[in-house]
Simulated scan of single mutants.
Amino acid sequence: MSDAPPRVVLRRDALDQGFSDDEIGRLTRRQDWVRLRRGAYLDGAPPDGAAARHRLLVRAALGGLRRPAVVSHQSAAVLFGLPLWGVRLDRVHVTRRPPSWNDASRALVVHVGSLGDDEVVEVGGVLVTSPARTAVDLARTLPFDRAVVVLDAALHTGLCTGPSLSEALGRCAGRPGVRSASRAVSFADGRSESVGESRSRVALHRLGLVPSDLQFRVRTLDGVLLGRTDFAWEDRRVVGEFDGRVKYGRLLRPGQLPGDAVFEEKRREDAIRDEGWGVVRWTWADLDSLTRLGARVRRALSRGG
């Protein structure tokens, strides 16, 4: 069985190859071809995952453009492999240099903005806004917490640096959303390792429960490392952990079962508590309720280690 990705077929190319509209209709009714958008089909089953499907939409959209454009915003983020939380991926986003005009349809959003040559890179044969420009464009257009998720990931993966984000921000001076982007860039921290940790950090700041450190290393009095925790309130001797299920998958060693990883994590937490540290954990559901998250963390801080 081939692992090759399904092929995107444009109607105009199919007609040039001798297909008729009737044949295309029969192929789609039999689901041999899947309609991606008007005039574009997928020769095979669509992949799982919104990001994988969006990559195919990008290919389909670019094939149907009459004027060249650079993939940008959330579409560029998908091509770079950056995580997106709460961001719609039903339309492809591109940017054109002026003179042009902003435009939007059910399948495509066209932004207009100046682009330096160094702000355009190639990803898999596709012209894309650079990582820093992509992150800043999203920070200008997304709500604060969603922008932070992208910015944290861009810094953590090394796609961007603090100076490169600052430079990209400076080039956007005078454009809509720059003040919001500046706030998000200032808040961004590459020590956040996941969407859940980035969302947690935003929530804790909104609650006035700002941790003193991230990725805090807990050691015994003899200096033996017991573990690294997501957050710490050192003056209260309390550490915090965002407890997303995927985390245990990241902890797995070759051949290790998920249950073994959970048991090992429990032993790690017990060792941390034995050193006089309190531990507070929260989940995705807690992030959807600031009241619940705030109450949980405040109880832990009031008890202390």
Score class of each variant (00 low, 15 high):
Pro6Met: 05
Val195Glu: 05
Ala132Glu: 06
Thr229Glu: 02
Leu65Lys: 09
His111Leu: 04
Pro258Tyr: 11
Asp13Arg: 14
Arg140Asp: 12
Pro6Trp: 06
Val218His: 03
Leu209Lys: 02
Val202Met: 07
Tyr41Leu: 12
Val210Gly: 02
Leu207Asn: 03
Glu275Gly: 03
Leu207Cys: 01
Ala135Pro: 11
Ala45Val: 14
Arg236Met: 10
Val109Gln: 05
Arg12Ile: 05
Asn102Ala: 10
Phe263Thr: 13
Ala261His: 14
Arg88Pro: 02
Thr220His: 10
Trp85Ile: 00
Ser200Ala: 15
Gly44Glu: 07
Arg30Gly: 10
Ile272His: 04
Val120Ala: 01
Leu108Glu: 05
Leu293Met: 09
Leu84Trp: 09
Ser75Cys: 12
Ala52Asn: 14
Asp213Val: 00
Ala285Pro: 02
Arg35Glu: 07
Arg292Cys: 07
Ala153Ile: 03
Pro68Lys: 10
Val70Gly: 01
Phe19Cys: 00
Leu204Thr: 06
Leu251Val: 07
Arg133Gln: 14
Ala153Pro: 08
Gly304Met: 01
Arg133Pro: 10
Val123Ser: 06
Ala51His: 15
Leu108Gln: 04
Thr134His: 11
Val78Pro: 08
Ala139Asp: 08
Glu119Tyr: 01
Pro176Asn: 13
His156Cys: 04
Val58Asp: 00
Gly158Arg: 04
Val92Glu: 07
Arg199Ser: 08
Val136Phe: 13
Tyr41Ala: 11
Arg299Tyr: 08
Val195Ala: 01
Val224Met: 09
Val110Arg: 09
Trp233Gln: 08
Thr283Asp: 05
Asp286Met: 14
Leu290His: 13
Asp286Glu: 15
His93Pro: 07
Leu204Gln: 11
Gly18Ile: 03
Arg29Asp: 12
Glu264Ile: 03
Pro99Val: 11
Ala232Phe: 04
Glu197Met: 09
Trp284Phe: 11
Asp270Ile: 07
Gln31Asn: 09
Thr129Gly: 06
Thr220Leu: 07
Leu204Glu: 10
Ala188Gly: 14
Asp274Cys: 10
Pro176Arg: 15
Gly170His: 14
Gly255Gln: 09
Thr95Ser: 08
Leu159Gln: 12
Arg37Asn: 04
Val94Cys: 02
Ala51Ile: 03
